[in-house]
C-alpha cells in the first residue's frame, strides 16, 4: 500500500507549484495576466511532453491540435447558441468536441506519420499546421479566412456576467485543471507498461520491437493523448479566453516553437520538466519583453541550441542526476 502511494509522490511538487501560482495570482494585484500566460505554458508543455518527451519524436505541426480544439469550442458555442437552457453544458460539449476533433486529426496524421521513423516523421508533420490552415482557408470551412467571432453567442449562452468571468478567470482555471490532469496522466503512463514501452522505443526503436513492443501502437497512444490535451488547451485558453478564431493565428508555428522550448528547457520526458520549463520560459519572456523587447525568440533560440548541445536532459534532468542518492529523489521525476 505504502509503495503504491509512493509512486504518486512526484505529483506533490507539481501540485504545490500550481497552488503557489494560483495564490500569487489571486493575491498580488495586476499579476493575473502573467499567471494566466504561465498557466497556458504549463499546460502546453505538459501536454506536448507526453508526445515529444516520452517518445522522442518531434511534431512540428503540434499547434494544429490547439487550433482544431479552438474550432471545436467555437463550433459548439456558435452552433448551440440558439438552444435555450443548455448554459454551461455548451462549454462541456465544446470541450468534448475539441477533444474529438483533435483526436480525429491526430489519428489521421498519426496513421500516416507514425509509421515513419524519426526524421521522416518530423518531415511529415512540419506541414500539418499549415496544411490544415490552408484547407480551412482554401475550402472555406468555418468561414474560411474570415474566421469566427463568437463573443455575442457566448454572452447569449452564459449571460453577460458569467461570460465575462469565464473570459477573465474561469478559462484560466480550466487551463490549470487541464495542466494538472496532463501531469497526472503523464505519471500514470510512466508507472504503467505504456511508460516502459515508450522509454524503450525512445531509446532504441528496433530493440524495442524485438522485445515484443508494438511500437506503433504505443506511439499512437502517446500522440492521441498529447493531441487531445492540446485540443482542450486550445478550447480553454484560446476559444474561451478570447472568443474568436482566425486560421493564421491558431495555426501559427510560433506556438510549436514555444512548446519545444518549454519541454526541452525543463527536461523532456520528465514529469516536472514542462512545469519548470514553462515557469522559466514564461517569466523570462515577460521580463525580456519589458527590458529587451523583440529579442525574446532570438534569445530562446540560442538557449535551445545551447541546451541541446550541452544539457540535453534539461533542468529537471540535471536535478534528477544530482539527487540520485538523496531523499529528494522520489519527489523528482
Amino acid at each position: 500500500m505504502n509503495s503504491k502511494l509512493k509512486k504518486y509522490y512526484p505529483l506533490l511538487p507539481v501540485c504545490v507549484a500550481y497552488l503557489i501560482l494560483f495564490l500569487v495570482g489571486r493575491n498580488v494585484t495586476g499579476i493575473w495576466q502573467l499567471v494566466s500566460t504561465l498557466l497556458f505554458y504549463c499546460a502546453l508543455g505538459q501536454a506536448f511532453n507526453i508526445f515529444l518527451g516520452m517518445t522522442g519524436y518531434v511534431d512540428f505541426g503540434y499547434v494544429a491540435f490547439l487550433g482544431v480544439g479552438t474550432y471545436g469550442m467555437a463550433t459548439a458555442v456558435t452552433g448551440l447558441a440558439g438552444y435555450e437552457g443548455l448554459g454551461v453544458g455548451v462549454i462541456v460539449i465544446g470541450f468534448a468536441l475539441a477533444v474529438i476533433m483533435a483526436t480525429l486529426l491526430s489519428m489521421a496524421v498519426g496513421a500516416v506519420a507514425l509509421r515513419l521513423r524519426g526524421a521522416y516523421f518530423a518531415i511529415a508533420t512540419i506541414g500539418v499546421n499549415e496544411g490544415f490552415r490552408y484547407l480551412i482557408e482554401g475550402a472555406n470551412l468555418w468561414n474560411g479566412s474570415s474566421g469566427m467571432i463568437f463573443t455575442a453567442e457566448l454572452n447569449q449562452i452564459l449571460g453577460r456576467d458569467l461570460a465575462g468571468r469565464v473570459m477573465t478567470f474561469w478559462a484560466d482555471i480550466l487551463v490549470l485543471i487541464i495542466g494538472v490532469a496532463a501531469a497526472v496522466v503523464t505519471l500514470l503512463y510512466m508507472n504503467s507498461k505504456i511508460g516502459y514501452a515508450l522509454t524503450a522505443l525512445r531509446e532504441d526503436e528496433d530493440a524495442a520491437k524485438v522485445m515484443g513492443i508494438h511500437v506503433t501502437k504505443f506511439k499512437i497512444i502517446a500522440f492521441i493523448t498529447s493531441a487531445s490535451f492540446a485540443g482542450m488547451v486550445g478550447a480553454a485558453s484560446w476559444a474561451l479566453k478570447t472568443p474568436y478564431v482566425f486560421p493564421p493565428e491558431v495555426f501559427e508555428i510560433h506556438y510549436t516553437i514555444e512548446a519545444i522550448i518549454i519541454v526541452m528547457l525543463g527536461g523532456a520526458g520528465t514529469l516536472m520538466g514542462p512545469l519548470v520549463g514553462a515557469l522559466i520560459y514564461g517569466v523570462s519572456k515577460y521580463y525580456l519583453s519589458i527590458f529587451l523587447p523583440g529579442f525574446q525568440l532570438f534569445i530562446f533560440a540560442l538557449v535551445i541550441i545551447v541546451i541541446i548541445v550541452l544539457f540535453p536532459e534539461g533542468v529537471v534532468g540535471v536535478l534528477k542526476g544530482k539527487t540520485r542518492n538523496n531523499r529528494l529523489k522520489q519527489l523528482i521525476l
Binding site: 518531434v58 512540428f60 524519426g118 533560440a301 540560442l302 541541446i308
Partner: peptide, 20 residues
C-alpha cells in the same frame, strides 16, 4: 545523439536566423 537533437538544433538555428 538521438535524431531529436539535430532536428531541434536546425529548427532553432532557423528561428535564430529569422529573429536576427
Amino acid at each position: 545523439a538521438p535524431e531529436l537533437a539535430t532536428l531541434l538544433a536546425t529548427f532553432s538555428a532557423g528561428v535564430l536566423l529569422e529573429e536576427s
